[in-house]
Design a protein around this nucleic acid. Structure first.
Lengths: 259, 259
DNA sequence: TTGCGGCTGTGACGATGGTCACCCTTGTGG
DNA sequence: CCACAAGGGTGACCATCGTCACAGCCGCAA
């Protein structure tokens, strides 16, 4: 909901220097260069040499997108990568008959469109902003060029790809290895809590997804998700207040997985 | 069935030179150095400099495994990558209650264990030889070192990871976006034909998987697969003779996907 | 206010497919 | 040659979950 741009002032100076050279627009969707943006580039590529960082910043250009904007669609020729500054993006696979499946939700700081860009094959997923979005875009050719000249960055990219793959494997578990829908949902809640959990308030998470979206993530119907949420509440496994979800009985929830 | 080792004599000379230095065993499972093996290393990393190829060969060591051998199990700390010379490996995710799901079948020439090795996270899948296997093993640390010193190779690895990811996405489609089991099987048959199809004999493929294994690939039960095969045969969509599968009516098969 | 659109909640119904139980064939090794 | 294991084939049963239909709720805009 609250979609505040967090700015890291310490970083700003370093960035401002690099950003001077960033005067090369690569498409219509470029609105402004990445100045207010926290530029998580150096979070992702934090262990690169300063020279590489500047190079990277030179080829990237920032843009903003409204909620619901489509960054790219499935099957499209890969144009490049998006590095999210703020806002989240859902990555979905969709079938001919309109069903769609959310494979991953990329949070701010993450990188989107990487596999397609690296391999050159059509994007295997579509990307849609689920919040107002600010992102750095790097066109494919320049990005590849950058990787070729920058071995350490290429290795870093390989690591990122491995992590994306890792997340995808977890997704496969939802879909393939769960007996019941209850199992899927329990697994989803626990996973979500693990990755989005507030550190201090144990078991409290903010869940900004609709039932529909959760259904698309775990491969179930909207109604089933609603029913299961009701069931979990009835059994005192979870509580829901607004968009806050509290895991009241984590152990019981984990029990469902093993069943 | 017939598991002949295909040897490419042309490659042998080049390899023999490089292989001289390969005298460093890294574990108990090393049986012999990679001499008879076609060493597809240079297929995967074919565009590397000769120097890099030699380095790569120096750190890799060949071993053979019987059918059913486990290269690694899910959750294990990553030890390194395996590059398959001959034989195939199935990569499976398994659940607590013993169910398992085949995510990918790596053919000879492919590389196995890459994401885990690159990211350092535990292998997300288990790997089991489904045929007698000959493979080159490269221990994690040496492999990473090699990538660090070899930017072009790192980029190549990123590409391979993208392709693995690509295959995984397709797998997700089976599990998540198919209405019926018939749809999954149809998709599976078409995919298999597309990737393993003989070029000259259109529509003829060799399918060396048991119904059980197919079931694990598409997320269905063995019985369902058997029943569907019977149904497809009855409807004249396919014919099966031994381990050869003939697609008699490709259009009808594709129709099932869209339904 | 009213109306509208997105989201959630709930009942009824029925197809799909997993499970169990069993049998048959084939290949392999003692 | 027999025994055994692994794979394939089939029927019966019934739990699960997707689908349809509809109702309440909230926020928002006219």
């Amino acid at each position: 909901m609250a979609n505040q741009l967090r700015v890291f002032p310490r970083r700003k100076k370093r960035i401002m220097r690099a950003v001077k050279n960033t005067r090369t627009p690569y498409g219509l969707d470029i609105i402004e260069s990445c100045v207010t943006c926290p530029l998580k580039l150096d979070r992702i590529f934090c262990d690169l040499s300063p020279r590489a960082l500047v190079m990277l910043d030179n080829i990237s250009s920032s843009a903003t997108y409204p909620k619901g904007a489509i960054l790219f669609v499935e099957g499209q020729e890969p144009r490049g990568v998006f590095i999210l500054c703020s806002g989240r993006v859902k990555l979905t696979a969709s079938s001919a008959d309109g069903k769609s499946l959310i494979m991953r939700i990329a949070d701010s700081g993450e990188i989107v469109g990487l596999p397609g860009t690296v391999s050159g094959k059509p994007y295997e997923l579509g990307a849609e902003a689920i919040e107002p979005l600010q992102a750095n875009f790097i066109p494919r050719e320049l990005f590849l060029q950058f990787l070729r000249e920058n071995g350490e960055a290429a290795l870093k990219v390989a690591q990122l790809l491995s992590e994306i793959y890792h997340a995808t494997c977890r997704e496969v578990r939802y879909l393939g290895l769960s007996g019941s829908a209850a199992e899927k949902l329990a697994r989803f809640i626990l996973d979500w809590a693990a990755s989005h959990g507030d550190v201090k308030s144990e078991g409290r998470v903010i869940l900004t997804l609709t039932h529909e979206e959760i259904a698309e993530m775990i491969g179930a119907s909207r109604e089933t998700v609603t029913r299961l949420f009701a069931e979990f509440k009835r059994k005192r496994l979870i509580e829901v207040r607004g968009s806050t979800l509290v895991i009241s009985n984590k152990i019981a929830l984990q029990q469902i997985l093993k069943a």
